[in-house]
Amino acid sequence: MRALVIAEHDNRHLKPATLAAAEAARQLGGGVDILVAGARCAAVAEAAAAIPGVETVLLADDAVFEQALAEPLADLIAGLAGGYDALLAAATAAGKNVMPRVAALLDVQQVSDIVAVVSPDTFVRPIYAGNALATVRSADAKKVITVRTTAFEAAAGSGAAAVKPVAAVADAGLSQFLERRVTESVRPELTSARVIVAGGRGIGSDGAFALVSQLADILGGAVGASRAAVDAGFIPNDAQVGQTGKIVAPDLYIAVGISGAIQHLAGMKDSKVIVAINKDGEAPIFQVADYGLVADVFEAVPALIDCLNR
């Protein structure tokens, strides 16, 4: 059983989500290699070589992989699949984009978003917005898997894998990259933050959303949001937490003006401690909150900021 993990990166830094995929790969019980496909991404390969348990880093360094377009990347991964029994990536936007394409090229039914490895062919994954956990056994000879990052803790330690260059693939030129607008933030990344303060429709306006950010900053946390807050334009799309947004599990999640729809809960109910601030005592968010405060956002949040500043 050999597994190949697909590294996620921006050509300079390895994304922490990769470590969760590597840990799931390690739990399959065989050798683990990692693929770094990008352009001028030697620094990423170096970081990947230090992941504990990784034997070889395959480095595909070529302009064709610079923007991680799904078409050439899937061709590359499918081409390397011969030497592996399992291919894994984090269930992030990038992993979700490319892995099913790889699976179809290999005629494999992918197992999405696993939260546990039961055995090398059997996995647990959430369905229906996390309202049920399905245990599935794959009959495919090769496994293609995406990994829920909050469910696999990165192994401790440091490795020293060898780096081996692999050849690029030809670009069919089907899709062309035009631009990427990345939300610039000095705050920690949502999916790896220890504290998250998330705002919902109850905040009322993008001006008022500054209260949420202020609270997050005092706590050194990240800012999250419900779909309603993103749809209303209070905050960019990449802050959405939930079934169809990001899955998070910080030590502390503070939900402010969020009602607690199942689609939102799906993304945050594995947080260690949940605090809810909502003026409606009947809001479903209180059913999952360890600490609830029935109060108006505009009184409670400034008071909280005040109290923490003291």
């Binding site: 996390g130 309202n131 245990t135 009959a139 495919d140 360890d290 600490y291 405060l293 029935v294």
Partner: peptide, 24 residues
Amino acid sequence: PRLALLKVAEPPTRKAGVIVGSVA
């Protein structure tokens, strides 16, 4: 199908906690 569904289970449920009286 390629995947056999072996089992479907309830996810662990959270206990509702306490309602606090104030920010302090």
